[in-house]
Simulated assay, not measured.
Amino acid sequence: MIDETSLAALFDAAAGARARAYAPYSGFSVGAAVLGAGGAIFAGCNVENAAYPVGACAEVGALSAMVAGGETRLAAILVIGGGAGLCTPCGACRQRIREFAGPDAAVVIAGPEGVRRRFTAGELLPESFGPEILQGARP
């Protein structure tokens, strides 16, 4: 799945991004870090907006950074949030992750104390709609 060195680097990058999150309305800061297929790490944080629906999730920032960095496949993503519960990606972010990840990609959920749970992309979004479904679908 993901080796401990990469996991530690993802955690550090996501925690650093979380510390810079812009969450003045909810007070719920989230950080995410993506391990690209090439081995590079890309981080993002949530950015809220006074017009609530136009904020951006941390996963969106990390995935955008990955694409801007020239990667289009991810091996793993780590999401870190506060509180007692799991800060798993929202439905829209699960679909965004799926765009760049196969069903076996690691999705690691963490809190400030460390890793809380590990999933695969397929476990979080079973029977998902991905880019390969569109191949050959046009008349």
Results as ranks from 00 to 15, higher is better:
1 M>S: 11
5 T>E: 12
5 T>R: 01
6 S>R: 07
7 L>Y: 04
7 L>V: 02
9 A>D: 03
10 L>C: 01
10 L>V: 01
12 D>I: 01
13 A>P: 03
13 A>Y: 00
13 A>D: 14
17 A>C: 08
22 Y>N: 09
24 P>M: 05
26 S>H: 02
27 G>I: 06
28 F>M: 10
28 F>R: 10
29 S>R: 13
30 V>P: 09
33 A>M: 07
36 G>C: 03
36 G>I: 03
36 G>Q: 10
37 A>C: 08
39 G>I: 02
40 A>S: 12
41 I>W: 00
45 C>M: 10
46 N>H: 00
48 E>D: 11
49 N>W: 01
56 A>T: 07
56 A>K: 04
60 V>L: 13
61 G>V: 02
65 A>E: 13
66 M>Y: 08
66 M>L: 07
68 A>V: 11
68 A>E: 07
70 G>R: 02
72 T>G: 11
72 T>W: 10
74 L>T: 04
75 A>V: 05
77 I>E: 00
77 I>P: 00
81 G>D: 15
82 G>I: 07
83 G>C: 14
84 A>F: 11
85 G>D: 15
91 G>R: 02
91 G>A: 09
96 R>G: 03
96 R>H: 12
97 I>K: 04
97 I>L: 09
98 R>G: 11
103 P>H: 09
104 D>S: 14
105 A>H: 15
107 V>I: 02
108 V>R: 03
112 P>I: 05
113 E>G: 12
114 G>F: 07
115 V>C: 11
122 G>Y: 13
125 L>R: 06
126 P>A: 06
129 F>H: 11
135 Q>M: 15
138 R>F: 14
138 R>M: 14
